[in-house]
Design a binder for these strands. Structure first.
Length: 300
DNA sequence: CTCCAGGTTCCGG
DNA sequence: CCGGAACATGGA
């Protein structure tokens, strides 16, 4: 980032690369030795130097808040269950923090995440920002855009969103934008903050394209409900393989009640560590009976 | 080409 | 409450 000198701030127990790669947020781009992104409407460059961060001048407080550098990680880790797999995930993800995301962009992004790979979500996010978001600046050759506002998306046609590769998510994202717009905009999401868990989930699920999983992601990554435990295909696989080995007929309800009690008050952190560790380990190879395919030795 | 992805919604037991 | 199917798109 050319121009003015970067400012430094202390960031102990923090791994920027790990945090940005963990599938919470999808728009940060590698730039120089660090990353360029937008926090709300503010363009930011962040670079890690051991236990401190170098950031865009004037953005220290914003960055510190966004990356939740105040979360008591030592205390968080102490609440994790002491099983082998949790310990392995912790060892692999130490320093990963749960980001505090702006509510609307978190909600909208996770609506678009349904049945999509992380890379696709990022691609969609960038397209939406570039086409419908406000240009907020640039770092080097990278132009930066804020997430499109509720008002802007609500005024679009479904075809505009489909043109960004949204597929069937175009309908639900548009519907949610219009629902929120009729409530006065993104600020209406603040009404959910004081609600207790059940009521908050119910309120979020009232938006189109929002079910239990997305609602929990928004509670965790947006509302800072660190006990929220989103169960996606990866986490479900981990739970079934590591915590319900050999058990028959483990229903979704069973997994949900287990996850809410077993992983404790910082279950959301535990979940994120399990998620990222599973993903980093790679997709489990499909077992295909190779014997069914016979080599054609007499051809070719 | 086939399989799968940070799911949601609707429908029939 | 539970399991299945449809729903779009693109990377592996």
């Amino acid at each position: 980032m050319a121009g003015s000198a970067l400012q430094s701030l202390p960031a102990p127990d923090f791994d920027l690369r790990l945090t940005l790669a963990s599938g919470q947020v999808f728009h940060w781009q590698p730039a120089g030795e660090g990353y360029a992104g937008v926090i709300g409407e503010v363009p930011v460059y962040v670079e890690q130097r051991e236990t401190s961060l170098l950031v865009t001048p004037g953005a220290r407080e914003l960055v510190s808040q966004y990356f939740a550098l105040d979360h008591p990680l030592t205390e968080v880790y102490a609440t994790f269950p002491a099983d082998d797999h949790m310990r392995t995930a912790l060892a692999a993800c130490r320093g990963l923090r749960i980001i505090r995301q702006p509510l609307w962009e978190c909600l909208a992004t996770f609506i678009t995440s349904a049945l999509k790979q992380v890379a696709h979500i990022a691609q969609i996010s960038h397209l939406l920002r570039r086409r419908f978001g406000r240009a907020v600046g640039a770092t080097g050759s990278i132009d930066l855009f804020a997430y499109p506002t509720v008002e802007r998306l609500a005024a679009l046609a479904e075809a505009d969103l489909r043109a960004c590769g949204l597929g069937f998510r175009a309908r639900t994202l548009l519907a949610t934008a219009r629902q929120l717009n009729s409530l006065g905009g993104a600020g209406a999401l603040e009404a959910i903050r004081p609600l207790e868990r059940g009521a908050a989930l119910e309120a979020l699920c009232a938006f189109a394209g929002v079910g239990t999983k997305v609602a929990n992601c928004v509670l965790l990554f947006g509302y800072e409900r660190l006990d929220a435990f989103p169960i996606d295909v990866w986490i479900e696989r981990v739970l079934r393989e590591r915590y319900f080995q050999g058990k028959r007929k483990v229903t979704a309800r069973r997994l949900e009640t287990f996850s809410q009690t077993y992983f404790g008050v910082y279950g959301g952190y535990a979940q994120q560590y399990l998620f990222h560790h599973a993903r980093a380990a790679g997709r489990p190879r499909r077992v295909r009976p190779t014997a069914s395919r016979k080599p054609k030795a007499d051809q070719g």
